[in-house]
Simulated scan of single mutants.
Amino acid sequence: MEIQGKVKKIGETQTFGTGGFRKREIVVTTEEQYPQDLMVEFVQDKTDLLNNYQVGQNVKISINLRGREWTSPQGEVKYFNSIQGWRIEALQSDASSSEMPPMPPNDAFEPVSNLNDEDPDDLPF
């Protein structure tokens, strides 16, 4: 699966336990009718993939959905989901391709002269 959006936040790498488990989180805001802030975690050697990205950048992240069951000390069973990233790539901004060409300066235009002597406000309707 993939998600696309704008980077809202990139966390620092966190290390847990004696085994040195590493995790780093990124928050991406999707660009759709109802934008969503999605937190994606990168683990172990994948944490370094986020080093070249910045807040505000448009990205595409390849993800896996993960789920797990947990039983509390009281015997209550709960379920947790997470979004785990395994690849990230920068997207080109579509704004540059959809923008109009730059407007020439005002002095590049000449005033329009009235070609006939009729009233310039003489509209046909």
Results as ranks from 00 to 15, higher is better:
Asp107Leu: 08
Thr13Asp: 06
Ser98Lys: 14
Asn81Glu: 06
Tyr53Leu: 05
Glu12Trp: 03
Pro73Tyr: 08
Val59Cys: 08
Phe21Ile: 01
Glu76Arg: 14
Glu41Pro: 11
Leu50Trp: 14
Asp117His: 01
Pro35Asn: 01
Glu25Lys: 13
Val43Ser: 00
Gly5Ser: 09
Asn52Ala: 04
Thr47Tyr: 02
Asp107His: 15
Gly56Phe: 00
Gln92Ser: 09
Pro104Thr: 11
Asp107Ala: 04
Tyr53Pro: 12
Gln84Asp: 11
Val55Ile: 06
Lys6Ser: 13
Gln57Ala: 12
Val59His: 10
Lys78His: 13
Val112Asp: 12
Lys9Phe: 13
Met103Lys: 04
Glu110Gly: 09
Pro101Thr: 07
Arg22Asn: 04
Gly75Ile: 12
Met103Asn: 03
Ser72Arg: 11
Asn114Glu: 15
Lys78Glu: 10
Leu49Phe: 09
Thr15Met: 07
Asn116Arg: 11
Ser82Lys: 08
Thr15Asn: 06
Asp45Gly: 04
Ile10Leu: 14
Pro111Ala: 08
Asp117Lys: 15
Ser97Gly: 00
Gly85His: 01
Lys23Tyr: 05
Ile63Ser: 04
Asn52Lys: 11
Gln33Gly: 06
Gly85Leu: 14
Asn51Met: 01
Glu32Trp: 02
Val59Asp: 10
Glu12Tyr: 02
Glu76Asn: 09
Lys23Trp: 05
